[in-house]
Design a protein around this nucleic acid. Structure first.
Length: 894
RNA sequence: GGGCGGUUAGCUCAGCGGGAGAGCACCUGCCUUACAAGCAGGGGGUCACAGGUUCAAAUCCUGUACCGCCCA
């Protein structure tokens, strides 16, 4: 083995081994234990960012863990066609060739995107492999696969036939740059600096009488069809029912009373533009107002407007309108303001409310079940508080606009007859049949040119990937899936829709648990973005530190309900941990004895005190880790393993083992080696979901070295993944011996401290006197003298030698007085001050404990074990204090 | 404006009713044949603030302040 772990050398080889061994493949058995996950499909155009790395690390941990727990596991990988994102990207590519999609035409353009997908669409899944993610690649799906498209068509047709999908003419969020409708969720409200323009609208037939309205979008006045005031606003009551004359246009528009108008805001009178504002649209509906459209699909002024504005881009039109209002004396004042402006999340363009025909899903009705299933606990969010966010949105859900004026995506399965009659069908053939029945003759149908919102197809992902609408074996076996791992940013976009559609079409929830992880931020807590230039590319990290270090870092930082600030020193720390494991293994291999069988049933009577201690610590840790993983507490699970392996196994057990390994007693040596190997192997298995590469590699080397392992430790298994996940064994928990080692450890640390204070060179031997008031403790010390000697490099040690009278420095630890004779105290003052500090601390603790025990309420009301514990503390503190005082008295006398 | 998180060691964060913890950084000493990507030792915190509940509060409740996110 090399001196340092080299992930670059290992990872590719191990991944190929997993695939060639078929370890990724799922297998349906008749096991009752099933665990399935569907990947949140990344955009096919994307490349792996650090958020994907977190998301997929967690899924991979769960999958590997459950596989080792003998579950039937399935992890479905795949990608999303990502309508807008992909189309934009290919359009951009075309633009660099001086072409537009219209030059190619629909079919050629789609051909081009497919071609792109064939060539470059597997980039992100390749990168997932680098991370060590091991989904069942044979189950890989793409949202535009034929099977998934069939699912989409069926869902559309069924929902349409039930009236849950319908076509409607209403205002939508229109992205003038992409020239498509987008859903509410794709609109980002951003605080933007702007102005309030106060515009005076003269009242018809009354010179000098006017009403002033304020607006942030003055150009929309061209489409005004009313002025609204509050019914109870006395300032305007006389005007209600009269007409205002729209400046620049000359149109007469009524002054109406409507509660929408807020007397507190602006002038209390508002202009109403039903064609270009969501609220005004509602006011218009209530009051039977005309709707005037003044914009085309690009956001240029058109329609029934004065000639001079026609053809102007919307912001140019704004300037022109303002100038003309000013010139005409209609502009009363301008006020600077900060207000919310809607932007398209993809294009970054200002979104316009625009009146069009679009397809909608009646989300309100689907939400009813989706809400109650979470209320009932059929689906549980982790952490729980995300359920509030979910409920809040679901209870106020709006119709979901699902049509997009794009080419890339699932084309809407709707055809129009010559008179506009709609025929929705799974395919053209059926649509024609329906149409013939309807018209009684053959007619030409025109298919709806639009495609569906990408989230419509990904909303079906948990069952469409398993073969629905076919009744496949996978669907029966793996649905509902066990857990969904996702970021909170797509709870509405995706999670909510999967729940609605899963309940509707599968009659069951799509998943039992939703684990919501945080967002990865940079060292300063900022979002990572290309423009800020603070992105950490997971592939770079993998190349520099290895996939295991990255995975372990992400797991260790994944505290529930919190974002993750990822920094290189942390990753480096866990890279070092991998190296630590590597070197511990090297140590074990250096001491392996050829032909020795590392059976897991060592005669327990042979186990030494440290053996029993490390086994206990292992089993405690294994129990913790299991609980943590089951609760999605990956931070705690990984940290428990980290501390066990580094602190307990490497820093103490491995060091202690040397006394036996380098000693003369053959039997003891054999037992120690057995324990060393067993604990290492079980740790590796426990660690495998977190750090799959290094653990598999070490397991492989064990096989290569011909080490004879018992079956329970993986004998005969080609992969560590095929060995059972280690579980704590009750009969390897030794309470007494564990406490003994903890005592010995604190004494050793105490001695080392005294050595450090005196500046004793590590290789110099020193003499020590140990005293305790407890004979029991002294027995423990005597029984473990070899460890104390070795671990603190002693030349001589007297246990219970009574008071030592010569020059010495001392320390009191766990009821043991440690006395180290010295030739001369270098700094008496410093020594006194050090011990006085200890004394002050103990005295304070003692006082607190005494206070508690003197309190009759405490004795009466506190549980007995707490009181008992407090009594124990009293003894300990008293003896500690007494010893310190004696030492200090002696020192002062010098 | 409504909702949800957060405020603990210099930094990043665990702990969430019974003796204040980790990693990094810092200080001191060590290249001790597993590892200098390391070893050993050490310093460092009125747990944001104010009330309350309790025998007992960093931990539960109420309020305040500040930071962040989501929705209007």
């Amino acid at each position: 083995m090399e001196k340092s772990y080299d992930p670059a050398e290992v990872e590719g080889r191990i991944y190929d081994f997993w695939i060639s061994s078929g370890l990724h493949k799922s297998e349906i058995t008749n096991s009752a234990k099933v665990f399935s996950i569907v990947i949140p499909p990344p955009n096919v155009t994307g490349s792996l960012h650090i958020g994907h790395a977190l998301n997929n690390t967690i899924q991979d941990i769960l999958i590997r863990y459950k596989r080792m727990k003998n579950f039937d596991v399935l992890w479905v990988p795949g990608t999303d066609h990502a309508g807008i994102a992909t189309q934009m990207m290919v359009e951009k590519e075309l633009a660099s060739e001086g072409l537009t999609k219209n030059d190619l035409g629909r079919d050629k353009f789609l051909e081009r995107i497919w071609q792109w997908k064939e060539n470059s669409g597997s980039r992100i899944t390749e990168q997932l492999r680098r991370l060590g993610a091991l989904p069942d690649w044979e189950m890989e799906r793409f949202t535009l696969d034929e099977g998934l498209s069939e699912a989409v068509r069926k869902v559309f047709v069924d929902l349409y036939s039930q009236g849950l999908i319908y076509r409607d003419k209403r205002l939508v969020n229109w992205d003038p740059e992409l020239r498509t409708a987008i859903s509410d969720l794709e609109v980002e409200q951003r605080e933007t600096r702007g102005n309030y323009w106060y515009i005076r609208y003269p009242i018809e037939g009354d010179d000098g009488l006017s009403v002033t309205v304020a607006t942030t979008r003055p150009e929309t006045m061209l489409g005004d069809t009313a002025v609204a005031v509050h019914p109870d606003d006395p300032r305007y009551s006389a005007l209600v029912g009269r007409n205002a004359v729209l400046p620049l246009v000359g149109r007469k528009i009524p002054v109406i009373a409507d509660e929408y108008s807020d007397p507190e805001k602006g002038t209390g009178a508002v202009k109403i533009t039903p064609g270009h504002d969501f609220n005004d649209f509602e006011v218009g509906k209530r009051n039977g107002l005309d709707i005037i459209n003044i914009l085309d699909e690009r956001g240029y002024v058109e329609g029934d407007v004065p000639e001079k504005y026609s053809g102007l881009e919307r912001f140019e039109a704004r300037k022109a309108v303002i100038k003309d209002l000013e010139d005409g004396g209609f502009l009363v004042k301008v006020e600077q303001t900060v207000h919310m402006v809607p932007y398209g999340d993809r294009s970054g363009a200002v979104v316009e409310p625009w009146l069009t025909d679009q397809w909608y899903v009646n989300a309100g009705e689907l939400a009813v079940q989706a809400i109650s299933c979470v209320e009932r606990g059929d689906i549980r969010f982790h952490p729980r508080f995300w359920e509030n966010t979910y409920f809040e949105w679901m209870k106020n859900i709006e119709p979901w606009c699902i049509s997009r004026q794009l080419w890339w995506g699932h084309r809407i399965p709707a055809w129009y007859g010559p008179d506009g009659e709609i025929f929705v069908a799974a395919n053209e053939h059926e649509a024609i049949a329906c149409a013939e029945k309807h018209y009684g003759e053959e007619v030409t149908l025109v298919r709806d040119p639009d495609v569906l919102d990408t989230w419509f197809s990904s909303g079906l992902w948990p069952f469409s990937t398993l073969g629905w609408p076919q009744d496949t074996e996978e669907l029966g076996h793996y649905y509902p899936t066990s857990c969904l791992v996702t970021g909170f940013d797509i709870i509405f976009f995706w999670v909510a829709r999967m729940i609605m559609l899963g309940l509707k079409f599968m009659d069951d929830v799509p998943f039992r648990d939703v684990y919501v992880h945080g967002l990865i931020r940079d060292a300063k807590g900022r979002k990572m973005s290309k423009t800020t230039g603070n992105v950490i590319d997971p592939i770079d990290v993998i190349e520099k530190y290895g996939a295991d270090a990255l995975r372990f870092s992400l797991a260790a930082l994944a505290a529930q309900g919190r974002d993750i600030k990822l920094t290189f020193p942390v990753i480096e720390g866990y890279r070092n941990f991998m190296n630590k494991i590597w070197n511990a293994t090297r140590f074990v291999f250096m001491n392996l004895e050829p032909g020795l069988v590392y059976d897991s049933d060592v005669d327990s009577s042979r186990l030494s005190v440290p053996d029993r201690w490390i086994l206990t610590r292992l089993n405690v840790t294994l129990g913790e880790v299991e609980g943590f993983i089951e609760n999605y507490e990956f931070d705690k699970a990984s940290q428990a393993l980290y501390h066990f392996i580094w602190d307990d196994y490497c820093d103490w057990y491995l060091e202690i083992s040397k006394f036996s390994l380098y000693g003369e007693d053959g039997e003891s040596k054999k037992t120690t080696l057995n324990v060393l190997v067993r604990v290492l192997l079980r740790s590796l298995r426990a660690l495998h979901p977190f750090a799959p590469y290094i653990t598999e590699e070490i397991f492989r080397i064990f096989g290569e070295k011909g080490v004879s392992l018992p079956e329970s430790e993986g004998l005969g298994s080609k992969s560590i993944l095929d060995v059972q996940y280690p579980t704590p064994s009750e009969n390897e928990m030794f309470k007494d011996e564990s406490e003994q080692v903890e005592l010995v450890k604190s004494v050793v640390t105490g001695i080392r401290n005294l050595r450090a204070i005196m500046g004793v060179h590590p290789s110099d031997k020193v003499s020590i006197h140990l005293n305790s008031e407890s004979g029991e403790i002294e027995d423990v010390l005597r029984e473990n003298l070899e460890i104390i000697f070795g671990m603190s490099s002693l030349g001589d040690c007297v246990v219970c030698g009574g008071d030592f009278q010569g020059k010495a420095i001392s320390e009191v630890v766990s009821g043991v007085e440690i006395v180290m004779p010295v030739e001369n105290l270098l700094d008496l003052e410093k020594e006194i001050s050090r011990l006085s500090k200890d004394l002050a601390k103990v005295s304070q603790e003692l006082k607190k404990t005494e206070g508690k025990l003197a309190n009759s309420d405490f004795i009466k009301r506190a549980p007995e074990d707490i009181v008992e514990k407090e009594r124990g503390k009293l003894d300990e503190f008293q003896s500690h204090k007494k010893k310190l005082e004696e030492i200090l008295r002696k020192l002062s006398a010098v």
